[in-house]
């Protein structure tokens, strides 16, 4: 890698080794990846990462949080994810349960006591999320009122000493087709209104790096795409695979790493020709790990069996 990032630091070889706080495998940066992240940080735009499975889409965000020393938050999208899951919503069930237990001596707390902040709220205004958008005095008064029954909102952030934040919104293409459009304003203006709650806005000087990933299984709305920095990850080439293997297993056999890499590339090509899911970097490392532990050499009979189990999942793929 030749590019030297301006907004964050990277080792000269572009490989991020395991951090202390976040346990992640080595991540290999390329010029394209480093520039895209730099552009996202410089422009304040969300970064939309696409690529084949196992190419490192979801790993980039926690790696960047470690490299930048920022807080890290994440949300994995499903078909049921709604905007309120990301911003904040009332816990109606808890409110109703409390209503059934309360009496005149112990009145029901106000509605705001049941607000549950979402990741965007925690990201943009962590202090406000802790207080559910109220003042410290109101919260203290509530705590006196309910005592040990006070329900503290759970902060999902790591590294809570820092204001700047990296947010991973994973697999956005799995969400309802309307959700990306619902996210336009919160991501654009770093502002939203919590339903039945307060408005939330990030401080002007707070830096927020939003990384979204997509498996491209569904088209995203053009209006959403026009507001995102695009980064398409590709499968690591042979040299990058060897780099990754070397950093995982610095004392491992180079011949084993290169033989397994050659096998993976061969299987990857064959899988693409047959319109099957190609093996990923994770499977490459799995294969090396298995060969090391079981003392299997590439080219042997045992290796042939191992390659089939690890790389080619034809029957599983067909079964869906």
């Amino acid at each position: 890698m030749d590019y030297r990032p301006k907004k964050f630091e990277l080792p000269n070889d572009g490989i991020h080794i395991k951090g202390d706080d976040l346990d992640h495998p080595p991540y290999v940066f390329t010029d394209k990846v480093a520039i895209a992240v730099d552009v996202a940080l410089a422009t304040g735009r969300p970064l939309l990462v696409s690529g084949p499975p196992g190419s490192g889409k979801s790993s980039l965000a926690p790696v960047m949080a470690t490299r930048l020393g920022w807080r890290y938050l994440h949300e994995i999208f499903t078909s049921r994810t709604r905007l309120e899951d990301l911003t904040g919503d009332l816990d109606q069930l808890r409110r109703l349960s409390d209503a059934q237990l309360r009496d005149e001596k112990n009145p029901l707390p106000e509605r705001w006591a049941y607000l549950e902040p979402g990741v965007l709220w925690w990201a943009f205004d962590r202090a406000g999320a802790v207080l559910r958008g109220r003042s410290q005095r109101e919260v203290d008064k509530l705590k006196q009122q309910v005592g040990e029954n006070y329900h503290h909102p759970q902060d999902p952030s790591t590294n809570t000493d820092v204001d700047h934040v990296v947010i991973l919104l994973d697999e956005i293409d799995k969400a309802d087709p309307d959700l990306p459009n619902d996210l336009l304003e919160p991501l654009d203006r770093k502002r939203f209104d919590v339903p039945q709650g307060p408005p939330v806005q990030a401080k002007p000087k707070q830096q927020v790096l939003v990384i979204l990933t997509t498996n491209e299984e569904r088209e995203l709305p053009p209006a959403f795409l026009r507001r995102c920095i695009s980064l398409r990850l590709t499968d690591p080439d042979r040299a990058q695979l060897l780099h990754i293997a070397h950093h995982h297993y610095p004392r491992g056999q180079k011949k084993l790493h290169s033989d397994v890499a050659d096998k993976l590339i061969e299987q990857r090509t064959a899988a693409r020709e047959q319109d099957l899911r190609p093996p990923s970097t994770s499977e490459y490392l799995d294969a090396i790990e298995a060969c090391r532990k079981l003392k299997i050499q590439p080219g042997s009979d045992q290796w042939a069996l191992l390659a089939q189990a690890t790389f080619v999942k034809e029957d599983n793929e067909r079964g869906g």
């Binding site: 010029d31 895209a36 410089a42 422009t43 735009r45 304003e185 770093k190 507001r227």
Partner: peptide
């Protein structure tokens, strides 16, 4: 409330060029 930024435009490109000091054609292209 902050002003809506709208679609990515030349302003974003200008920001990237200046803040990242992109003087290399290859990096500029990327």
């Amino acid at each position: 409330p902050s002003r809506p930024r709208g679609d990515i435009g030349l302003g974003d490109l200008a920001k990237a060029i200046v803040e990242l000091d992109l003087d290399n054609n290859h990096y500029l292209h990327l």
